[in-house]
Structure formats: structure tokens, C-alpha cells
């Protein structure tokens, strides 16, 4: 298995501020890996560079054999990358099902005017899309909540719905931006299992940004540590936990608790 996503010296500057500095990662196909780092280290900016929301000032991003740096967001998605957001960004006034249906956009082929005379292709595709949406809804454990308006769903359900929406585009690579933010420890562990299921059952490569060390150490196969936009360490969870620079970046506190938590995480 080779790398599905490689970034080469990706740099993003805002005026004089260097948010991402020559950051390089190689994400192996069908792996679960993480980018971690203190607040404001530039992780989300890096995600935004991958998804095309920002154009990197310098550097190259290679996904599945294509150079994708500087492509517009919709085209990046069509190549097979989809993402969730740190602060959930659902289409809050649309229903859960509609959210997932929008997510399926890249795979729908009918032209807009076919809806006017309801061509056979249109009816078939809509029925299939609806079926797929319900399947995804069940997959993320939200059976029967399809007709609820998204912003009325409980917080945890919104997180799951956002993942379902991201899955709807049938991505090869799924970027999760702090998926456990705002969750209690039980919910986090549950989500961790769910992420593993995504990879095992659907064969999707997963790249996380995460603060919860328990989650990160528990499921990642490879970790990159970011600080002030640059890479300060990379390796397996075990290597990262022993890396003095990482401990320094987290002022010892995060890493130490990370150590303790990992043991629990590995038991789990």
C-alpha cells in the first residue's frame, strides 16, 4: 500500500504570519493517522490547504496521483476527499436526510431539467440516493431521525450526521477536524470505535486533527506533531509519546496525561 496523500513543503502565509511552514506528511492508504499540536499550531489551516479552501503559498499536494494544490474546493471533493468541521457546520435548517442527499452531489448524474419532466433516470437516481441516505443514516446510528431539522438534533447526533454527510460523497480520504470536541469520555470512546469501523468496513483512509490524546493514541497508526506551523515530530503513538520535543511543546502536561490515558486506551 502506498501513500494516498502526500504533501510536499506545504507553506501558507497570511501577510507576515506563517501559519503552515513546509509541512510534509505521507498518509498511507487505508490507514488512520493524526495531526496533533497545541491550539493555534496551524492544523486547521493545513486542512484548509488540502481541501482547497486555501491555496498554499508554496508546496505541492499530491492526492491519488493528482496534484491538487490550488484546486477549488468542489473539485477537490470530486477527486475523493471529504471533511468534517471543528465547529459542526451542517446545513442547519435542512433535514438530516437532505444533508446527506446534498453530500451525494458528486455522484448524481442527472441534469437539472430532467427533474421537470421526471425522466426515468431521474426517478431511479433519486430513489437510489434516498435509499443510500437512509443506509448511511443507519450506519452512523441515526435510524429514524431523517426528518428532523439538523439544528434540532442533539450535539452527538449532529457530529454523526456530519460524518454521514462526508461519507455520502464516497471519499477515498476522510478528514476529521476534532471529531470528539465537546464530547464526554464515553462518547469519545464510542466515536473511536466508530472511526475504526469506517476504515475496516468501508476501506476509507482517515486523517484526524484531534486534541483528545486518548483518542489519538488509541486509534492512530501514524502521528505528525505540528507546532508554530512546522513539523516537530512524526512516528507511531509510542514514538511520539517518548519524543522530548513533543513533551516540551505540550509543556509536559498533555504528553504526561497522554501517557496515562494511552494505557487505558489500549485496554479499550
Amino acid at each position: 500500500m502506498g501513500a494516498i496523500l502526500s504533501t510536499h513543503k506545504v507553506t501558507k502565509r497570511f501577510g507576515g504570519l506563517v501559519a503552515v511552514n513546509s509541512f510534509e506528511i505521507d498518509v498511507q492508504e487505508q490507514s488512520i493517522s493524526s495531526v496533533i499540536g497545541p491550539n493555534g499550531a496551524g492544523k486547521t489551516t493545513f486542512f484548509n490547504c488540502i481541501t482547497g479552501f486555501y491555496t498554499p503559498t508554496e508546496g505541492e499536494i499530491i492526492f491519488d496521483g493528482h496534484y491538487i494544490q490550488g484546486l477549488s474546493t468542489d473539485r477537490v471533493t470530486q477527486k475523493g476527499i471529504s471533511r468534517t468541521y471543528q465547529n459542526i457546520r451542517l446545513f442547519s435548517k435542512m433535514t438530516a436526510i437532505e444533508n446527506i442527499l446534498v453530500g451525494q452531489h458528486p455522484h448524481l448524474k442527472t441534469l437539472w431539467f430532467e427533474a421537470l419532466y421526471k425522466s426515468r433516470r431521474f426517478l431511479k437516481e433519486e430513489a437510489e440516493a434516498l435509499e443510500e441516505s437512509i443506509r448511511l443514516l443507519n450506519f452512523v446510528g441515526l435510524s429514524g431521525m431523517g426528518d428532523h431539522v439538523a439544528h434540532n438534533l442533539p450535539y452527538g447526533a449532529q457530529r454523526r450526521l456530519e460524518i454521514a454527510r462526508a461519507l455520502a460523497s464516497k471519499p477515498k480520504l476522510l478528514l476529521l477536524d476534532e471529531p470528539t470536541a465537546g464530547m464526554n469520555p464515553n462518547e469519545s470512546v464510542e466515536l473511536m470505535h466508530f472511526i475504526r469501523r469506517l476504515r475496516d468496513e468501508l476501506g476509507i483512509t482517515i486523517l484526524l486533527i484531534e486534541h483528545d490524546m486518548k483518542v489519538v493514541m488509541g486509534i492512530s497508526e501514524e502521528i505528525w506533531v505540528m507546532d508554530f506551523g512546522g513539523k516537530i515530530a512524526e512516528g507511531t503513538p509510542l514514538q511520539i509519546q517518548r519524543n522530548p520535543r513533543v513533551i516540551e511543546a505540550y509543556l509536559g502536561r498533555g504528553a504526561a496525561s497522554g501517557l496515562n490515558l494511552t494505557e487505558e486506551g489500549e485496554e479499550a
Binding site: 493528482h66 490550488g70 477549488s72 473539485r75
Partner: peptide, 10 residues
């Protein structure tokens, strides 16, 4: 050509 088409925006 694919690269050009990817980047071209009408």
C-alpha cells in the same frame, strides 16, 4: 490536459 482542465475556470 486533465491538469489543465482541473485548473481552468470559465
Amino acid at each position: 490536459l486533465q491538469q489543465f482542465l482541473d485548473r481552468f475556470s470559465l
